[in-house]
C-alpha cells in the first residue's frame, strides 16, 4: 500500500487500488456458488509491454488484464502513453518488448504477436472492434452506411444480400440511425451519426472485445451524452469487454468499471473507477481529479 514516502520515487510502483496481493489469502476459492468469478480467465493479458520511439518512451512496462464483460478506461493527459498502450495491446503497433496474450473463442490462449497476420486480421474483424476518435479513420466514407455495416459480414463469408442488408438495417436502428439512411454515404452524416455508424460497423460480428480511442472526442456535449448512453446500453446488453482511452474523467466515470491512470508512459494507479475518482491515491491522480471543472 502506498505510503507517503513512495511518491518521491521517480517511478513509483503502480498503485493497485485495494491491496497488494493478487490472491487474497482469505478467499476460500471454490465455495459453492461462484464459478463465474473463480473459473473465469482474462480475455486479454498484456505483460511488461513497452514501446520506445528511439529514446523516447511511448509506454513502459505496462501489465494489464482485461476480463470478459468489463469496461476499462485508460486515462491521462495527452502524451501520457494511453494511445500507444491501446495500439500496442490491439496489435496496431508492435511493442518493443512485452507480450500480449488473448483467449480465443475456442478457449486457447494465444500470443498475439506470434500469430500470423491472416489470423490476426480475422480476429480483428470478428472478435474485436476498434472505434477511432475520427470516424473517417474507421469508416469507408464513399460507400453506403449499409455496406459499411455489412463489410465485416461479407469479409467473414456472408453471401446473402437480403440478410446482410437486414442485419445492417437492424444495427442502424440499434445505434439510432433511421433505416432510410441505409443507402446514404457517411459523408452525408453528422459527426455523431458517423460515430454511431462506426460503432455499428464494429459490433455487427458480435465481438467480445472493443478498443475505443477517445470515442466522444470532438463531439458536441449533447451529442456526446447521447453517444455515451448508447455505448453504455450496448456494452451492458452485449456483455462487451471494452478498453476505452479518454482524457475525460466524466466519460470514464460513466462508462467504465475499472480505471488505469497513466503518466509519462507508465501506469501510476489502477482500481475500481469510483474508487480511483473518489479516493485517488497517487499524486498525479489527485491532481487530475482535482482539475475537473464542475458544470
Amino acid at each position: 500500500m502506498m505510503t507517503q514516502g513512495d511518491s518521491v520515487s521517480p517511478h513509483p510502483e503502480p498503485i493497485e487500488g485495494r491491496g497488494e496481493t493478487a490472491n487474497p489469502p482469505l478467499r476460500q476459492a471454490q465455495g459453492d456458488g461462484l464459478p463465474a468469478l473463480a473459473e473465469e480467465k482474462p480475455l486479454l493479458s498484456a505483460s511488461g509491454v513497452s514501446k520506445f520511439y528511439g529514446s523516447r518512451i511511448g509506454c513502459e512496462d505496462v501489465s494489464i488484464d482485461i476480463w470478459p464483460g468489463e469496461v476499462v478506461a485508460v486515462v491521462g493527459e495527452s502524451g501520457s502513453g494511453k494511445t500507444t498502450l491501446l495500439n500496442c495491446i490491439s496489435t496496431r503497433l508492435m511493442p518493443t518488448t512485452g507480450t500480449v496474450a488473448y483467449r480465443m473463442r475456442d478457449g486457447q490462449i494465444r500470443d498475439l504477436y506470434r500469430m500470423g497476420e491472416a489470423e490476426r486480421r480475422f480476429l480483428m474483424r470478428t472478435d474485436w472492434g476498434f472505434v477511432h476518435q475520427n470516424p473517417a479513420d474507421g469508416l469507408r466514407m464513399t460507400v453506403s452506411a449499409g455496406a459499411n455495416v455489412g463489410e465485416r459480414l461479407m469479409a467473414t463469408g456472408a453471401r446473402h444480400y437480403g440478410n446482410i442488408r437486414a442485419t445492417a438495417g437492424d444495427w442502424l436502428g440499434r445505434v439510432e440511425i433511421a433505416e432510410d439512411r441505409i443507402d446514404d454515404q457517411p459523408r452525408a452524416f453528422s459527426g455523431g451519426m458517423r460515430q454511431r455508424l462506426q460503432i455499428a460497423r464494429n459490433l455487427v460480428t458480435g465481438p467480445r472485445l472493443v478498443f475505443m480511442d477517445e470515442p466522444t472526442g470532438g463531439l458536441d456535449v449533447s451529442v456526446q451524452a447521447r453517444l455515451l448512453d448508447l455505448l453504455r446500453g450496448l456494452v451492458t446488453d452485449l456483455g462487451l469487454a471494452v478498453v476505452v482511452v479518454t482524457h475525460d474523467l466524466a466519460v470514464a466515470r460513466l462508462l467504465s468499471h475499472r480505471m488505469v491512470v497513466m503518466k509519462d508512459g507508465r501506469v501510476i494507479e489502477t482500481g475500481l473507477t469510483d474508487r480511483v475518482l473518489d479516493d485517488p491515491r497517487a499524486p498525479y491522480t489527485q491532481l487530475l481529479v482535482s482539475s475537473i471543472l464542475q458544470a
Binding site: 469507408r140 455496406a147 463489410e151 461479407m154 469479409a155 467473414t156 453471401r159
Partner: peptide
C-alpha cells in the same frame, strides 16, 4: 481478405 469485393457488389 476479399470482403471489400463484395462490398462493391453490395453497393
Amino acid at each position: 481478405d476479399y470482403g471489400l469485393m463484395h462490398v462493391k457488389l453490395y453497393e
